[in-house]
Design a protein around this nucleic acid. Structure first.
Length: 477
RNA sequence: GGCGCUAUCGUCUAACGGUUAGGACGGAGCCCUCUCAAGGCUCAAAUACGGGUUCGAUUCCCGUUAGCGCUACCA
């Protein structure tokens, strides 16, 4: 029975590295008919915030993958404390009365710290007496010292792992306020929730030895482990909001108009490969292809810059997905971005405009810059020189626009009829078709680079086109 | 400092002893073309360094270097 969990701590927005961990867990569960569990690791009351909890839910819901069970660690404190107590009763943990502050001062950087002197071998009687007297203590795991042991496990990604207990310090299980540490809470829950596979970031690889010691002390069988390579910034450092800004937050991608699936697809390609040349994959393909064999062991760079905050490959995948969408679906997705920009548009208008920009936008929000002229009454000011066609002059621009007025006035406003009419007009003027089209394009769009002309005219409608051309003629005076 | 992990084009990666070291993104060029895109074709671009093992190393071993992680009563 496969059971995996994603266990974020709500101390910040949902990080893209966390999102990838979630996705890999999800893929593994779905691939093998397992159960996906969301566990909020909120034992650090000091740093938990409601805002980050919401950010996590927002991000996960946007990803649209879902989960089967959900738990909150803060509601399970008793379980964690009981586990710690049980380990203490077995004498595999001890009370450390060393004041927390003193810790830092006593530990010299550059020296290996294993435990505080004197505390490990305090007699149970004295320990009980001091505890009863109200002295504060942390509960520490009594890591085997003599003889030293090798702690081993098989990582599904990193292979055989081994570490000597001589290199593992007596880590805390309970803080002096009685609250469980991450290690205690995490292991107690993993055991209680019968997690079969722990899939998490490689930053936990060396913690795993401690966790194995905990499982051992409780008598629970260790789950299988799979550690994932870390996501790093182009400067090689771990992604962090402080250093790298909003690019590390999932909601940034959502707000920019990434499609959830394109983003998921991109994240999957970071540190994992299906081992063939497939890159753009559906959710079903990803699920079918996923395995820990395909996971890489080295850190993965997310390729962004100050100028371009998004990895070009993510943008490309998004554009590919946008192009593959049914027009009606894309139109629906685009509408909120148009409205948010303050434009007025309805479903019908969107359905007309969408095919014209579908292969010209990479992110949903690009609709604002690619199709703005469809949604305004008055075009923003533009340079009249733009109206002048290639190898032409002002006079040619005027001639074209003045010819366009009656031609378009008489034309049926459909793609083919407009093309026929305008091509014939260019013949009559003895100029190239391109020289005919450009002044009109700039007159109705306000810029040189725009969607194909005939469809654009059609979507704009006769009245708007004639009005804008008239206006352009005036600016040419 | 100690312990651990990692090292193929700029980036993501494939090649689990024998390949002209493959693909993708991005870049450059050409074609198509009413502009912009999209699409098609082409090009440039990598095995960190030094030793082994082997008939033969990107691949296995050792060392060096570099990067990252852990080394909290954070998670």
């Amino acid at each position: 029975m496969i059971r995996v969990r994603f266990a974020p701590s709500p101390t910040g927005f949902l990080h893209i590295g966390s999102a990838r961990t979630f996705i890999f867990n999800w893929l593994y569960a779905r691939r093998n008919g397992g159960t996906m569990i969301l566990r909020i690791d909120d034992t650090d009351i000091e740093r938990n915030t409601e805002a980050s909890l919401n950010s996590i839910y927002d991000g996960l819901r946007w990803l649209d993958l879902g989960w089967d069970e959900e738990y909150r660690q803060s509601e399970r404190l008793k379980l964690h404390q009981e586990m710690a107590q049980a380990i203490f009763e077995k004498d595999l943990a001890y009370r450390d009365f060393t004041p927390a502050q003193a810790d830092e001062g006593e530990r010299r950087a550059g020296e290996t710290w294993l435990f505080n002197p004197g505390m490990r071998d305090l007699s149970r009687e004295e320990s009980d007496r001091r505890a009863a007297a109200g002295e504060r203590f942390a509960l520490r795991y009594r890591v085997p010292r003599e003889p030293v042991r090798q702690i081993c496990f098989q990582d599904a990604v990193y292979g055989e792992q081994m570490k000597s207990t001589a290199d593992i310090e007596d880590f805390a299980l309970l803080r002096s306020d009685g609250m469980p540490t991450y290690h205690a809470a995490s292991c107690a829950d993993d055991a209680d929730l019968r997690i079969s596979h722990i899939v998490r970031g490689q930053d936990h690889l060396t913690n795993t030895f401690k966790h194995i010691l905990i499982f051992e002390a409780t008598g629970a069988a260790s789950p299988q482990f799979a550690h994932l390579p870390l996501l790093v910034a182009p400067d090689g450092t771990k992604l962090s909001k402080r250093r790298h800004g909003p690019v590390v937050s999932v909601t940034t991608y959502r707000d920019a108009g990434f499609l959830p699936h394109a983003f998921t697809n991109f994240l999957c390609l970071l540190g994992w490969s299906p081992k063939d040349d497939r890159e753009r994959m559906t959710r079903e393909e990803l699920t079918g292809a996923f395995s820990f064999e395909g996971v890489n062991r080295s850190n993965t760079t997310v390729n962004f810059t100050d100028e371009d905050p998004f990895d070009p490959k993510a943008v490309w995948l998004n554009a590919e997905n946008i192009r593959a969408m049914p027009v009606a679906e894309l139109a629906k997705q685009l509408l909120p971005f148009v409205c948010a920009a303050g434009f007025h548009a309805g479903d019908e208008k969107m359905l007309q405009v969408t095919p014209l920009i579908q292969e010209r936008i990479k992110l949903l929000r690009d609709v604002i810059t690619a199709a703005d002229f469809f949604f305004v009454d008055e075009l923003p000011p533009y340079d009249a020189a733009e109206l002048i066609p290639q190898k032409g002059d002002r006079a040619m621009a005027r001639m074209v626009l003045e010819k366009a007025l009656p031609v378009l006035g008489a034309a049926e406003f459909s793609h083919d009829a407009l093309e026929a009419a305008l091509r014939q007009a260019s013949d009559e003027l003895k100029i190239k078709a391109g020289q005919m089209f450009q002044p009109i394009r700039v007159a109705v769009c306000g810029r040189k680079n725009a969607p194909p002309l005939f469809g654009t005219l059609e979507a704009l409608g006769k009245e708007t086109c004639l009005r804008r051309i008239q206006k352009a003629i005036e600016t040419l005076q």
